[in-house]
Every structure is written in C-alpha cells, then in structure tokens.
C-alpha cells in the first residue's frame, strides 16, 4: 500500500508543494495523510472561501457601525470607500439591553424558541406516528408512503405559495371552516393567527423528513427483539417503550438535532408566507436579521450580522449541551 501511495506522490497527481518552513512532524503527517487531505481539499476550499471568510468578515462587521450609507459602494463610475468605524461591542449591547430591546430582540427570541420547540415536537410526534403506521404490514403502504412524502418532493416555495392562497381571506381553509361553522381567523393578518399559520405550514413541510428517517430507523430494529419481548409477555405499549424507542435512539438524536438547527434557522416558510414586509410579530430571529440587513433603508449591516452571530452562538451552545446530555444518557442506559 505504501508503494502505491508513494508512487502516486511521485507523479504529483496533486500539485501541493510543501510550504517552506514546515516542521518535520507536519511533513511526515502530510506524507502519511496526503490523500485524505487531497480528498477533503475541495470542500475545505469552498467552505473556507465562501463560509469561513464571510463569517470572519461578518464578525468584523458586528464590531462596526456599518450600514448601506457608509459601506463601500459604487455609484455610477465613482467608487466610494467604506467610512464606518469600529464601535466595539456596542451592537451587542444595544441588541441585548439597549432601549426597546424587548420589542426588537427578546420578543423574537421567545417566539423563535417556542417556534423551534413546538415545530420540532410536532414534526417528531407526527413523523413517528406515521412511521409506525407505515411500518405495519398494510395493503397499499407503498402508495401511502409516496403520498405522504409529497410535501417534501415539491419545492418549498411552491407549496408555501399554495398555502398562502389557501390561507388568504376567502381562501380554501376559511371556506372549509365556514362550512363547518367555525370561526375564521385572518390567518395572514391577525398576529396570533399568523403564528399558528406559520407553525401549521412548517409542520406540514417538515414531517416527511422525520417520517422517512424514523421509518428507516424502525426497519433497522431487529425483529427478534420484538419476538423476545412478546415471549416475555410485554404489552404493545411496553414493546414500544422498551424496544422501539431505545432502538430509535441514534436516529432520533441525529434527526432531532438537525430538526432543531433547521427549524431555528427556518427562513423560507416565514419569508414566503408573509412576504418581505408582512407580519412583524411572527418574524423569527433569522428573518428579522434579514429584514434589518435587506428589508429596510438604510440597510443595517452591522446589527444584522450581530443577530447572525447571536443566533449561531445560541445554536452552538445548544448543540454542546445536547451532545453532553446524549452522552450522559448513553452512559446511564448502557
């Protein structure tokens, strides 16, 4: 094997000149792992240039008072250089406890947290319920599965657009509610109904992913475990509680984490459902940050980026705790 590797290095199939001044240890590590590095190089390059670098620049922006009036820009042929200043942590202080910080930040913060908890909870329970049903030996379950995946197969902006038409005043949803003599909330106008509508649509959009992932998890649980449990006289609930749920643990922990991240940063549903300027109360932190940076004049780049950094920190802290909690559970349950 080492022959093949050295031969390949000799040919220089990857032009990667070792930089001068590299320590011997690094050189050896490079000789040993160069193919691993070659394989990850494209991803590292793309992510580095288009994510890490913008992130670094975004971090710098949060420490300034940059907005669209003082950032570098082009008017006709004239290049106007950037004229914003370093302001330290003022942006963060202003967001977190400046005047009006409740309306600007904390109300959206509370809503984002409840939105995430509510949506992921609904995704998971409904997804698990449907996955359990699809895992039964039922006639036509392939058809059911195809239909149930539909919300995922059709692009989000198409389905959200359809929901928008359905939720509009006099649209299909209120038509149905009035036929049933139920109250007809103004789904796209009333603040509380807006939130309900957003949760409804996002649940509809997100369930198929959970359902399919959990279905895969269910199918990977060995049937012998169920047989053994049945032999021991376990009831259906006990089998669910002590065989199904533990068997799903690894799948669940991953999809819940992904679900939390994706729901927390859910941009498309809110943005497309309420348009660029509607529903100020139903804005999540991420759409609110976008609105600060793009939806108003002058565009407040610095605050928008500061929101982004705060969002990212919340998620990283959450992930850290979540993983620690998982590890502890793992140890506790063996």
């Amino acid at each position: 094997m080492s022959v093949a590797v050295q031969g390949a290095t000799g040919q220089g199939s990857r032009q990667r000149d070792p930089r001068p001044g590299l320590m011997e240890r690094l050189k050896r590590s490079y000789a040993k792992h160069w193919y691993a590095y070659a394989m990850i190089a494209p991803v590292v390059l793309v992510l580095g240039v288009l994510v890490l670098y913008p992130l670094a620049e975004g971090l710098w922006l949060t420490l300034t008072d940059a907005n669209s009036l003082n950032a570098a820009r082009k008017i006709g042929v004239n290049e106007i250089p950037a004229s914003y200043h370093f302001v330290g942590l003022d942006n963060y202080a202003d967001i977190l406890w400046g005047p009006g910080s409740y309306d600007r930040f904390w109300s959206h913060f509370v809503w984002t947290i409840s939105w995430t908890a509510l949506c992921v909870g609904l995704h998971y329970t409904i997804g698990l319920g449907l996955a359990l049903l699809l895992n039964q030996k039922l006639r036509g379950r392939a058809v059911y599965r195809m239909l149930l995946i539909l919300p995922w197969a059709v692009p989000t902006f198409v389905t959200v657009f359809s929901w928008r038409l359905m939720l509009a005043d006099g649209g299909a949803v209120n038509g149905l509610l009035s036929a049933l003599h139920l109250p007809e909330p103004g789904w796209l106008d009333d603040p509380l109904a807006q939130k309900a509508a957003a949760v409804l649509v996002n649940t509809w959009v997100g369930v198929p992913f959970m359902m399919i992932s959990l279905l895969g998890g269910l199918q990977s649980i060995p049937a012998e475990l169920y047989e053994a449990a049945e032999m021991d006289g376990a009831t259906a609930w006990q089998r669910f509680r002590h065989v199904t749920l533990p068997g799903l643990r690894t799948v669940s922990s991953t999809v819940v984490l992904l679900g939390v991240i994706w729901t927390f940063n859910q941009f498309a549903v809110i943005f497309l459902l309420f348009g660029a300027n509607g529903a100020p109360d139903a804005q999540l932190l991420v759409t609110w940050a976008y609105r600060l940076g793009f939806g108003q004049q002058p565009r407040d780049y610095a605050q928008s980026a500061a929101y982004g950094v705060i969002l990212l920190s919340i998620l990283i802290v959450f992930t850290g705790f979540y993983r620690r909690w998982l590890a502890r559970n793992e140890r506790a349950n063996g």
Partner: peptide, 21 residues
Amino acid sequence: WSLLVTQMFPIAVLIVPMYTI
C-alpha cells in the same frame, strides 16, 4: 464539527459578506 456548524449558519446573514467576496 465544522460541517455541522456550517449548517447552523443563519445563511441569510452571510449574504452581505458573500456578495462582497
């Protein structure tokens, strides 16, 4: 880790720096 963290980016916020780059 960075693959996971990249997914956490509120990508809407990266648009300005990305645009410059």
